[in-house]
Computed example of a mutant assay.
Amino acid sequence: MIGLALKLLRDELSNYIFQNKTPDDSITEDDIILHNIALMESDSQADLNNKIVITLVNTEEESTLKNSSNIFRTPKNVKYVEPPVFLNLYILISTTLGQDLQDAYEFALGRLSLVIQFFQAKKSFTVKNSPFTTISGNNNISQENKEELKLNVELYTLTFEQINHLWGSLGGKQVPFAMYKVRLVSIKENSGQEVPLIEELVNNENVTNAN
């Protein structure tokens, strides 16, 4: 579910960036990617140059929704399952520099502005209201999972201390970026224990006294 959520956001953001970029910006829809920005300084650095990189940096359980019911009733039985885990995802969106571009930093800042502009205009995402995602036409993804994808995205502001710690832990040089908090991704296991409904109660105490 986490992968589907981030792919949905990537697909929609890719289309927006491509449609609204400046005429002299050569970025394509394939240059908006899901990747680990920590690899920016590794041997595969060239793969992350001149890109918009979406990286999952933290997950958090939504504590306000922990106490949901774990009992599901059907006409014939009752099923006991553990309630789903509702997650908040913290994603880092980085606009990396192109090594061969004279105005690489200016391009990166312009792309970051488009990212912020996109999420300012659209904060809620589902498969139905996201016409540019390939998830809707993917028959390998169940309809249930498609319907459960309901994401709310908000800008998450870091302090200077948190920024230093974040990029230090990623082990790379800081590039233009924005952090977003994505609510809520639901993860659940469908297995559970089914038991029959109790249709009649027998008072054994009364039966014993009668004898």
Rank of each mutant, 00 (worst) to 15 (best):
E41K: 14
T55N: 04
L56N: 05
L101T: 00
T28A: 15
P196E: 09
M40W: 06
R111D: 06
N211C: 05
V207T: 07
L114K: 12
F160N: 10
N190S: 09
I37F: 00
F72I: 14
G168E: 01
L155F: 10
V115R: 13
I2N: 07
E144Y: 06
V182Y: 01
E199S: 13
I27K: 07
Q193N: 15
F160C: 08
L170C: 01
L39D: 14
H165W: 09
V127A: 10
M179V: 10
P131I: 13
A178E: 10
I32M: 08
N77W: 02
A210E: 12
D103T: 06
L8I: 06
Q102P: 01
T126Y: 02
E60Q: 08
L34D: 11
K123N: 08
P83A: 11
G171E: 03
M40D: 13
E82C: 07
I163M: 09
Q143K: 10
K66T: 03
N203L: 10
R10I: 04
S69L: 05
K173H: 15
S42R: 08
S186W: 00
Q193C: 04
F125G: 12
P75E: 04
Q162W: 08
T157M: 11
H165Q: 12
L65Q: 09
E144N: 15
N15T: 09
T134D: 14
K79A: 12
L170T: 03
V115D: 05
N152G: 09
L201D: 09
D30W: 02
G137R: 13
V85I: 15
N204S: 13
E154F: 10
S14E: 12
N88I: 02
